[in-house]
């Protein structure tokens, strides 16, 4: 058995999420190869080669794979898939975009967002916004799987895998990259942060999110938001935590002015410790919070910042 892991990378660096997927691959068992596809990705391939448990890094370095557009990237993986029993990727917007396309090209089902490996063909995954956990078994010879990173601890960096080039070049006449507008942030990445502080509709305005910044700085936290806060235009949508946004499972999650709708809980209820700050003591968020503080966030936040 052998497993191909699609490396996730951003801004010329290997994303930490890849190490979580390698951990999931280790639980399945077998040789683990990492595919690094993109343009000018030599440094990323070297980082991938250091991940524990990786046998080989295969590098497809070509302009065709810049921005990992679905059409050429899926064609590349489908080309290589014949050598493998499993193809894994992060359940990120990249993995979710590319892998179902690979699965259909290979005429197999895809298993989305696994949170646990039961055996080589049996996996656990959340359904209904995380309100039920399904155990599913694949009958396909090739298993195409996206991995929810919060379900697996990252592997370390003591490896020294061989790096080899892949010379297959997918031609893509159908889609072209136009532009990217990435949100600028010096804080830790939301999906990987140990502490997350999120604001909801109760924050009242985008300016008031600055009240979270001082606390985030002191705790080294990432700042998130509920859908209500995003829809109200307080913050950009890449900050959204929830069923349709990012799934996080930090050590500490602080929900401020967030009522705790099912769709938001789906994105954060696996956090180790949850703190809720809300003026409505009936808010559903208090049912999942380890520590709840009922009160006015405009008084509580400055006090909390001063006492940390």
């Amino acid at each position: 058995m052998s497993i191909l892991v699609l490396a996730e990378h951003h801004d010329g660096a290997l994303a930490g999420a890849t190490a979580h997927v390698v951990a999931a691959a280790q639980q399945i068992g077998g040789d683990i190869d990492v595919l690094v596809a993109g343009e000018n990705v030599a440094a990323i391939a070297e980082s991938a080669a250091k991940l524990d448990g990786v046998s080989k890094v295969r590098v497809a370095d070509n302009a065709a794979y810049a921005h990992l557009l679905a059409e050429p990237t899926a064609a590349l993986i489908a080309e290589l898939a014949g050598d493998y029993s499993h193809v894994l990727a992060v359940a990120s917007t990249t993995g979710k975009n590319v892998l179902p396309r690979v699965a259909a090209l290979k005429d197999v089902a895809q298993i989305s967002e696994i949170i646990a490996v039961e055996s080589v063909d049996t996996f656990k995954r959340p359904i209904y916004a995380g309100n039920a956990i399904a155990t599913v078994q694949s009958e396909d010879a090739l298993k195409v799987i996206t991995v929810r990173t919060t379900g697996f601890d990252a592997v370390g960096e003591g490896g020294s895998a061989a790096i080899e080039a892949v010379d297959f070049v997918a031609d893509n006449a159908q889609s072209t990259f136009v532009k990217e507008e990435l949100a600028q942030s010096d804080r830790p990445e939301l999906g990987a942060a140990k502490v997350v502080i999120s604001g909801g509709r109760g924050m009242g305005s985008g300016e008031n999110f600055t009240l979270l910044e001082g606390i985030a700085d002191k705790l080294g936290a990432a700042i998130g938001a509920s859908r209500a806060a995003v829809d109200a235009g307080f913050v950009p949508n890449d900050m959204q935590v929830g069923q349709t946004g990012k799934i996080v499972a930090p050590e500490l999650y602080i929900a401020v002015g967030i009522s705790g709708a099912i769709q938001h809980l789906a994105g954060m209820k696996d956090s180790k410790v949850i703190v809720a700050i809300n003026k409505d003591e009936e808010a559903p968020i208090f049912q999942v919070a380890d520590y709840g503080l009922v009160g006015d966030l405009f008084e509580i936040l400055p006090e909390l910042e001063s006492k940390l």
Partner: peptide
Amino acid sequence: RVSLLKVESPAERKGGIKVASVDELVDKL
């Protein structure tokens, strides 16, 4: 081609507590 072997409820979070002040919250954390 994917069989559904089992559907379970997710692990329940055990009920938390309400704290009375910021000081108590920081202390508990």
